[in-house]
Amino acid sequence: APHGPGLGYRELNCDDPETEQAALAAVDYLNSNLLQGYKHTLNQIDKVKVWPRRPTGEVFEMEIDTLETTCYALDPTPAANCSVRKLEQHAVEGDCDFHVLKQDGQFSVLSAKCDSSPDSAEDVRKVCPDCPLLAPLNDTRVVHAVEAALAAFNNRNNGSYYQLVEVSRAQLVPLPVSTYVEFAVAATDCVAKEVIDPANCNLLAEKQYGFCKSTLTQKVGGEDVAVTCTVFPTQPVLPDGTNGPSPMVASAAPASPPAAAVMVGPLVV
């Protein structure tokens, strides 16, 4: 349809409180629908156009930059309480395009598209020449470190056997020679002490996810594994046809403060 008078967009300052409200609603939506990786936080609003919407309301067309936090996607900690990943830890940014509807004073997300990318090695080196960079998640040393950490965790665990959900981050540390990994796990119907073949174990209907951090250090004649896992409160059974980690939708999983998280460990083996 041809553009007529009054059909143009409204320009708004990127730091206008109304723009910020729309951006925060967009980032909340993003974090509520993550299936893997880490929660993100708002870093900068790049562009905003506000379009009139018929019959009522306005649509905020926005470009937003985000930064990765240290909270895993399924961690119930509110994103506002999560620390931003530091440059020295090899930060990751998100580039997002959103359409956010404002109607009756309420914001709701109509569309979202985000891509994330790690900081360049060159930039990390500028702030920290000796800091380890992010390693490919399929690196054999990474895979081995995760397997060893998961085995160590299950060996010390008197409850359910936990299986790997995803490896979310890894770094190869030069001195002492070690591999640092972060990964997500989920409880199964097997008892950790009695597992013979993990392939026969199934995820519980009431999903219970956990998040682990581990360092595998090479030593003369062997290796040391230190692993710490935090198990999150269980998530309610989802309707049939829903597979994999479920989004932490507010209505489906009430946000709990970190103190309410069930702590398993820390187990240091």
Partner: peptide, 27 residues
């Protein structure tokens, strides 16, 4: 005081509405 009609006077620094402020750091 001599005024030159027709010469625009700068009204201060130009305000750039976008992009907005950086909350943490830029990478």
């Amino acid at each position: 005081m001599v005024a030159q009609p027709g010469v625009a006077v700068a009204a201060g620094p130009v305000v750039r509405p976008c992009p907005g402020r950086i909350r943490h750091f830029k990478i």
